[in-house]
Write a protein that binds this DNA or RNA. Structure first.
Length: 446
RNA sequence: CGGGGCGUGGCGCAGCUUGGUAGCGCGGCGGUUUUGGGAACCGCAGGUCGUUGGUUCAAAUCCAAUCGCCCCGACCA
């Protein structure tokens, strides 16, 4: 993509409303524009990142055996009256009337809808287990939205729902989700720690939240430092195997890790050696629940078991804050110059800076590198603007592409271009004809 | 919802106390000179001063109402 033809409205100055790094940087990098309090338009660059994250979420869901569908944003109040949550949910739920005076709501979550779908079409234990999910916009009318997309009112969320014939099977679904979530975050370059959580308004017995450490996080967390050493590191996982999922869950839930809601100071002190006790702020980026028959009973979601008896299904729900992750990743990965995208979620894999825009040779070299990259399925962002070097560097640093290739007549005289890594500024000189190959090698690891 | 603050060109702000026909920096457009870390100069364009009503010869400025946004708190993925 030629920057001169792209739409990238970057800001040199910081808009006054931005309080935290991710919000400030998303506005400055032209990723989002606020449309109303807590509601944002996603500009092209931000949209690309959002899609990258959504893609990873989808891939990992499908890998775990979960099935995508798409439910509406607007829902009829009647199902919510059936579950009893129309009144319980409170002011946070945006209520709307249509022209006939019927009560609608902009869904803050989808348990009712999914349960309705399930009960209409699934009747036998033979159809279980089943996990359905979607990635859809939600609305929660927060009293005070803030921190940009980190706590907006409208947000994109992956929410999934598992249906199992009994508790044991539902617990496996719970474990499978935990493992799949760990994989998902790890692929985005994030270290997300599962922590025992309150079940909140959704209800139920089992719940873990996934938290990313960041000074600006809204939660206070307490954990055993040893949990930071855990990683999946691409290990093979059999999501159908209860034992294999449970082993990973055990590994991650063995070290103490809790949010302030569930923190137990004396347990913390007696079970974790002092040198490993850590306290931090963190951002919640996902949560999983097992809630048994909370919705299936009142809503009549039952299946015939192997003896022909109708039993309510055991359910769980699971959420990943897709739009929030964009902010969370920036909180976890930025410096004074701008964003530092991890490769898997970067809006473009590499930026090409032409520092000698009027040198036709430099232009030809840049275009040739672009073609080579595109042939390998990598789309670079080519800064071909009539700008001075400083402005190009500053823009590239701000938008945080993980790699940049600098092409200038000075280097070309020696037959070289410069390849630089955003995170640490480490660079190497390389022949232009090898540049694309080098980038492809780097990205092959992701 | 309680407390505080702010709405002036795309962004950041001054002007308001003490009414007199709107200004600065950045950005944009044209030109010249520049050209490896946010260039310099010249010129130009762009503003119903959030909105409505009131006071006044005259309102960005004073008064009232209203809308929007931000911060602290309670609430939350």
């Amino acid at each position: 993509m030629r920057m001169s033809r792209y739409f990238l409205p970057v800001l040199k100055e910081t808009p006054a409303e931005a309080q935290i790094a991710s919000h400030r940087l998303m506005l400055r990098a032209g990723m989002v524009r606020q449309a109303a309090a807590g509601i944002y338009s996603w500009m092209p660059l931000g949209y690309r990142v959002l899609k990258r994250i959504e893609d990873i979420v989808n891939q990992e869901q499908i890998r775990a055996g979960h099935i995508p569908l798409l439910m509406p944003t607007l829902q009829s109040a009647s199902l919510w009256r059936e579950s009893g949550r129309y009144d319980d949910y409170g002011e946070e739920m945006l209520r709307i009337k249509d022209r006939h005076g019927r009560d609608l709501l902009y869904g803050p979550t989808n348990e009712e809808l999914i349960t309705d779908i399930f009960r209409s079409h699934v009747n036998s234990y033979r159809d279980l287990p089943l996990t359905l999910y979607h990635v859809q916009w939600k609305f929660r009318d927060e009293i005070r939205p803030r921190y940009g997309v980190m706590r907006g009112r409208e947000f994109l969320m992956k929410d999934g729902y598992n249906f199992d014939v009994d508790k044991a099977s539902a617990i496996h679904s719970y474990n499978r989700h935990m493992v799949s979530y760990l994989r998902t975050y790890e692929r985005m370059g994030l270290q997300a720690i599962p922590m025992r959580a309150d079940t909140g308004p959704i209800g139920g017995d089992y719940s873990h939240e996934f938290l990313v450490l960041a000074d600006t996080g809204e939660s206070e967390v307490f954990f055993d430092n040893s949990i930071l050493e855990l990683n999946l590191d691409g290990r093979e996982i059999d999501f159908d195997s209860e034992a294999s999922c449970r082993a990973i869950v055990d590994e991650w839930t063995e070290p103490y890790s809790r949010t302030d809601e569930t923190h137990d100071e004396s347990l913390f002190e007696t079970t974790v050696p002092e040198v490993r006790r850590r306290k931090s702020r963190a951002i919640e980026v996902g949560q999983i629940f097992y809630f048994g028959t909370k919705y299936s009973e009142p809503m009549g979601a039952t299946v015939a078991d192997s003896e022909g008896r109708r039993v309510p299904v055991h359910m769980g729900s699971h959420g990943i804050g897709v739009s929030r992750l964009v902010g969370a990743i920036i909180e976890a990965s930025h410096d004074e110059k701008g964003i530092v995208w991890p490769e898997p979620v970067a809006p473009f894999p590499v930026g090409i800076l032409n520092l000698s825009q009027r040198d036709s040779n430099a232009e030809a070299v840049c275009l040739s590198i672009c073609r080579d990259l595109e042939a390998k399925g990598l789309e670079p962002l080519y800064d071909d603007r009539e700008e001075r070097a400083g402005a190009k560097f500053a823009t590239m640093d701000l938008i945080g592409l993980p790699w940049r290739i600098v092409v200038g007549s000075r280097g070309l005289a020696k037959g070289a271009v410069e390849l630089t890594r955003r995170i640490d500024g480490e660079s190497e000189t390389i022949a232009p004809e090898h540049a694309a190959e080098r980038i492809a090698e780097i990205y092959a690891a992701y």
